[in-house]
Design a protein around this nucleic acid. Structure first.
Lengths: 200, 200, 200, 200
DNA sequence: GATGAATGAGGGTTCATTCAT
DNA sequence: TATGAATGAACCCTCATTCAT
């Protein structure tokens, strides 16, 4: 089987794992469920991943890489003020709730879950995501548009928390079939957070 | 055995579960570990709780009740403006990172974890906690000190997210033995969030 | 459950393991087969033994202890010359083929099998069994009834090999329902081996 | 690929299997390990052997054929008395411990292992090897140099047992890097066994 | 109530074997 | 022939839960 197809199969397993983990949660999900969802045999998963934990880690890395790349590309091509870029970031984050519901649920619910992520694994991709936010904040502080006296790390962490929780709320609402006005939520959230960081 | 002692034992199990779940995570933790930590036999846990899930739910309710009561009492006796009360709330939330580290870790990490909480269980205590924040926001919007055009629900959710994430960051930092300036963080966070919601 | 009964259950598992391992071989045997043969649940085995390997080791130790004790007691009370004692030892070894067929098959087939026994585990009980034979040989060399120029270790090893192989042959014959004249075989074997070690 | 090369590959697999089975034991060894050691793909093994069991059987036959042929040729060209031929046989058996360590370990450890060999498979090559020993014994009994009253089958079996155990002991000692005096051991063993079978 | 030995369903993982290339 | 990715049956072991004491 060609390298092409192998990459394909690995990706299919990751895609399936995303769906299954989002639906059932990592610990509740069965490896055999992921296999079935991917259309492969149970054993095949172990050709591409060391074990169930490794699948979680690799899935997390894969999707964070995707989000980080998408965010970087989008912000790179838009230009604009820090405030505008910040608003764009908020929008891009929240829009996952409807455009990539599984991913949104996976990120919001599973990110904190495992000791492996938060403690042992260290989670560099998460740090990278935070550093994108931080970049905007510090740029704004540098050009005088954002309040300089606030500790950027605290601010960034708070902003991510606000985004993440909002995303969770929107995602669950969307899952339950409720109408979700992502644009409005993004607008409100951007207003709120910008109000807090903007220099007078 | 008297009612007194039974209540005692139930509480001992809850306390042990908090420690063990904070340390190991709900799914990774073993019922026998909770039993050992509580100084009771494995079977005893099932005299007070239906099963492991029920233990998690009851623990969550128990600690949220504690937090809610503490918060309500503290806010009730302090009086002051909405902004002052909001600042107090932020401080009380973050101070858990050093004064109740296990609880902080449990809340921040386990709260999102189980589908049972978020979807099936519905999680009324969490809603109650949110409603305390909401009360302050709406009161502030009512008396003109807070910006009225923001959707209170979105704001509340974002604020909780910011608090929760900040608490997580502080808790993990504390766990790793790093010096943590809770007061500073609380001050920064209050400034940030108040800046966002305060009327001009 | 009392200590008494636990010991009982542990022994029941060992007895069952002996039967199953003799019948099926260690690697081919399933833990669940041992459990069924012992009349316990699969998991119960793991209350008394760390894992399948440990069960094998403990079984080996248990039965070797039994054989060693039996041999020592029997030889202790019989007295007699070294040659007579040697003849008795041969008889006691071979009689296992009909009086403890499972044990005979287990010892002859499984003793050499596992790396764990021969290499890693080191196998002190086996050494102890050899030392009983060695004691007789060296005593005989000491009192001039056995040839002193032979290296006792080589002799002992060869004697054990002869006994073991003879036991295997008798056991398999017995298993196949053939008439087995253990006394004759023991007599021939004793004659043969004594002829080799006896001083002229 | 020519017949020549195929035979080559079959032999390479057998050689690899000998090494791997000696090192790891049949049940612990993986087919993929044999394949890697042979420098072929896993599937290739199944072009030459029906399955893992068959590989073991064929390997056993191959090496026993080798031993039997070597023994027959060596004994045929040496001539001499039965006692001398017997001494030669002992030496040839034990010398495997240093000149063909893997083979020695394979024979001594794996020969008894599988029920398949002892019960189902019946093991004609092993019988053939025994019959060589038996030939010498019976010839000696016929010409009056060996004691005629001993049952040849019992004697042969005992002799093989002694040889086999001695070979195992020497092989393991050699594996552990200890100095092994094969000639001395062979001499002692021949003396011992001849003393037992020789007519007075 | 309290115990903890016993249970046994269930799941992650392995690995002999197959078969499309 | 040869390959090695893919398969999936099988098995060891765990651990939440029960229940006789």
């Amino acid at each position: 089987m060609s390298r092409e197809k192998s990459v394909d199969k690995r990706q299919r397993i990751l895609d399936a794992a995303l769906r299954v983990f989002a639906e059932r949660g990592f610990y509740t999900a069965r490896v055999s469920e992921v296999a079935r969802a991917a259309g492969v045999a149970d054993g095949t998963i172990y050709l591409y991943f060391q074990n169930k934990d490794d699948l979680l880690i690799k899935l997390f890395e894969d999707r964070m890489d995707f989000l980080i790349r998408r965010l970087n590309e989008d912000l790179a091509e838009m230009g604009g003020t820090c405030a505008e870029r910040f608003g764009r970031l908020v929008h891009l984050h929240l829009v996952l709730s409807t455009e990539a519901t599984d991913l949104a649920e996976f990120i919001t619910v599973e990110l904190r879950q495992s000791q492996k992520f938060i403690k042992e694994y260290g989670n560099p991709r998460f740090q990278e995501y935070l550093s994108i936010i931080r970049g905007i904040i510090e740029e704004g502080q540098g050009d005088g548009s954002f309040r300089p006296e606030l500790d950027a790390r605290t601010v960034v962490r708070a902003i991510f928390g606000a985004l993440d929780e909002a995303l969770l709320a929107l995602t669950l609402a969307h899952r339950r079939g409720r109408e979700v006005d992502v644009a409005r939520a993004a607008s409100d959230l951007a207003t709120l957070l910008l109000g807090g960081i903007r220099a007078d």
